[in-house]
Design a protein around this nucleic acid. Structure first.
Lengths: 204, 204
DNA sequence: AGCTTAATGCGATTTTGTTGCTTCTAGGCG
DNA sequence: CGCCTAGAAGCAACAAAATCGCATTAAGCT
């Protein structure tokens, strides 16, 4: 039986809050489970039982923070919307805290659930932009194509390369993703079903 | 002062070997630092001092295993070489052990050194293929462009999406990377200096 | 060979992680 | 409305791990 409300929910909230506070105060490296437990006003065993270890807890918190809060801005054209979205994506994800959240989300994630969720967030945002453009009558590429050509290169650089990521790079990627010939040819590239979220027992 | 030889080197070798053996025997989840230390014939404090924690040790071992052992095959044309390389890349990286190594490499890597090294391995391999093609007089894209269009989408799927990765997908990515117009336009995309390896104290 | 110093070994100590059992409470049912 | 049930949290004893100071070993240099 799942218990989404009552005490369980309060415990989860206070634990999450404690993690966020302590990460800000002492840094992620100094964080320990007993420390979080004390701050949250619970016993360590509660955390160990619900999350297993610090990594999974951090992963849980990280996915929460990576969830986009608003729909992408509507600037009147697909080009402008995608540009703005990609630029904001880079700003959020490539910043030191953003990188840390991405790493944490990937980290304590044995089954890839959290990683899939992150990807799904990006796909949803792109879908909104593309649907709006289609509504306007603009030709639109497949979501998968935008992920391959815009999101993937950005994430690859964030995770694997020290190099810089700026707005100009974002625009180049978008230009390329919207290239007419590529957009038509892109249908061939469609594959890889969208990941679905299977709630954890700690459901939030 | 760095001590690349003698006892330090022997300790490192035996620790790495112990990790590989134990991962195969008991699995990564059951692995502990004291266990590795016993198998390697060293004291736990040695491992803690040199590697910090289990994650960094695993990251160290993972990078070793992700190092390509041979140059990409020469099949007579850029297209064939890249196809073959991408296909092999997917085979190795998308397999369960490959994914595990990638995760480990990213995991215990506070400064991104190991991740940069993984990226550098791929870049080196691609450079070999491209240099050979240039030698033959074929038009070649920038290394960065191949990374953005072939490597990045593959790694993104491996890390974030449950979907399938097969040879057909690899070929589509290569086709797209070699597209003539894109190859010319690609010069604009060049940025992000190649990462350089700064040896750890445990130097291997 | 002798010197210097990084690296390892060893053991005491602290901290973290695990487990069995009890207590509490949300949600279901009569 | 109050009992019942079972999942979740608390508690405490225990096991395992990580840390630290100090002694010892041995690379690398002159």
């Amino acid at each position: 039986m799942v218990r989404p409300g009552g005490r369980s929910a309060r415990v989860q909230q206070s634990v999450h809050a404690a993690v966020r506070e302590l990460v800000a105060e002492v840094g992620r490296d100094a964080l320990t489970v007993p420390m979080v437990a004390t701050r949250a006003g619970v016993t360590p065993s509660t955390i160990y039982r619900r999350w297993g270890d610090l990594q999974e807890l951090l992963s849980d918190v990280a996915v929460e923070r990576l969830r986009p809060e608003t729909d992408p801005a509507d600037l009147g054209s697909l080009r402008a919307d995608l540009d703005a979205w990609a630029e904001q994506f880079i700003d959020e994800m490539a910043s030191p805290p953003g990188r840390a959240y991405i790493r944490d989300a990937l980290l304590g994630d044995p089954d890839g659930t959290n990683a899939g969720q992150c990807s799904a967030y990006a796909a949803e945002q792109i879908d909104v932009v593309l649907a709006r453009a289609a509504q306007r009558g603009e030709p639109v590429p497949e979501t998968e194509l935008v992920i391959d050509r815009v999101v993937a290169p950005i994430m690859y650089r964030i995770l694997f390369r020290p190099g810089r990521l700026d707005a100009a790079y974002a625009r180049e990627l978008v230009t390329h993703a919207l290239d007419a010939r590529q957009t038509e040819a892109g249908a061939r590239l469609t594959r890889a079903a969208a990941p679905r979220r299977s709630k954890k027992k700690s459901g939030h």
